[in-house]
Computed example of a mutant assay.
Amino acid sequence: MSVQVEVNIQNCFWDESELENPENDSSKDNIMESSPVTIDCPLNVTEWENWFQIWLNHLHPYLPTASSYELSLRLTNDTEIQTLNTEYRSQNQPTDVLAFAALEVNCPLPAELLSSQSLYLGDIVISVETAHHQAQQQGHSLKTELGWLATHGLLHLLGWDHPDDESLTQMLNQQRVLLETIELTV
């Protein structure tokens, strides 16, 4: 059975000056020349949808039964993600990824509803600015870092968490497996 997924992608805008050394940025070709500058991620909507489709097919055993799935992905900057991190997690600092799950673990939905309607999993917010810096630090592409962060957010939407070292290790291992399904490695 193939899982159907719809991904709502939103991009945020910021000044090129907010990136350190933009002239050394390997994704410089993806910067649109307008004001404000759009830092475009190296993936288009179709590619994101394909990735999430592959990941959700792989994670099928962890999914509630539904005819299809939806999620939102917001690609933003450090300023906006810091605002969200402060508001929702009381941490006044930028972060790389936030996930806002729409499903409650102990709140089952009626089977008739799940089989006839698309199930909204929640929202993933990624700071492309932080992803850019982390990709440089890790020595891999922005595309790989965005995939890594998107898998982390997706697992959170599905109820995965990492309150201790053992669960963090399990989650990181699952992220690696998900990246391998789209032929990326960290």
Rank of each mutant, 00 (worst) to 15 (best):
T79F: 14
L75D: 05
R74D: 08
E87Q: 15
E70T: 09
R89G: 00
T83R: 10
V97E: 13
E80G: 00
Y62P: 01
L71Y: 04
L56I: 08
Y69E: 14
P64V: 04
T86G: 01
T65F: 11
L56S: 07
E87F: 05
Y62M: 11
R89V: 02
D96C: 06
N77A: 10
Q91P: 00
A99H: 09
N92P: 05
T95R: 04
Y69M: 11
F100R: 08
L98F: 03
H60G: 01
S68G: 13
Q82F: 01
L63E: 12
S72P: 09
Y69I: 09
N77L: 01
P61E: 14
H60Y: 07
I54V: 15
T79A: 15
L56F: 07
T76P: 08
R74S: 14
N57W: 00
T83H: 07
P94W: 06
R89P: 05
N77K: 13
S68A: 15
T79Q: 15
E87C: 07
H58S: 09
Y88Q: 11
A99Y: 05
I81N: 00
L84P: 03
L73Q: 11
L84D: 09
N57F: 00
S72K: 14
Q82T: 11
S67I: 13
S68R: 12
A66C: 03
N85V: 00
P94I: 02
F100T: 08
H58Y: 14
T76G: 13
T86F: 03
T95G: 09
L63D: 15
T76I: 06
A99W: 02
Q82N: 08
L98W: 01
A99Q: 09
R89Y: 15
T83A: 07
L75F: 08
T86K: 15
R89A: 12
S72W: 06
S72F: 05
N85A: 04
T95I: 13
Q91N: 10
H58T: 10
S72T: 12
Y69A: 12
A66F: 06
N57P: 00
N85E: 02
L71M: 09
I81S: 07
Y62I: 04
L63N: 13
N92G: 01
E80F: 03
L73M: 09
F100E: 11
I81W: 03
A99S: 03
S67F: 08
L71A: 05
P64I: 01
R89S: 04
P94A: 13
Q93C: 12
P94D: 01
D78G: 13
P94C: 04
T86L: 08
